[in-house]
């Protein structure tokens, strides 16, 4: 089966996010008040697996080994089956 995983990587809460802070400030200049702006990266991974459980396991492993740095990041995985 073919699956697609959306992997979202963001900084752990409490960590400095200078890019987010700068964007928040720029939004203020344009007249938009926000409570917070946080940056995140999304990786879209297509992969083959026997079932959705295996697909999740593979992507989890990819996050732990490479895509996220557990010292500074949280990650979230959303999986869907591709037709």
């Amino acid at each position: 089966m073919q699956y697609q995983a959306d992997v979202t990587i963001e900084l752990k809460s409490g960590m400095l996010d200078p890019e987010g802070t700068t964007i928040k400030r720029a939004l203020e200049h344009l007249g938009y008040e926000t409570d917070n702006v946080k940056t995140a990266k999304k990786y879209i991974i297509d992969l083959q697996a026997d079932n959705i459980h295996d697909a999740r396991e593979h992507v989890e492993e990819m996050c732990q080994k490479l895509i996220a740095n557990p010292i500074i990041h949280n990650y979230a995985i959303t999986l869907r089956e591709l037709q």
């Binding site: 900084l11 960590m15 400095l16 200078p18 890019e19 700068t22 010292i71």
Partner: peptide
């Protein structure tokens, strides 16, 4: 070296980016 775990911690974007 931090990414490979040979040293502790991480290097992130400068406070003023």
């Amino acid at each position: 070296l931090t990414e490979s775990g040979l040293l502790d911690g991480a290097l992130t974007t400068n406070k003023y980016p």
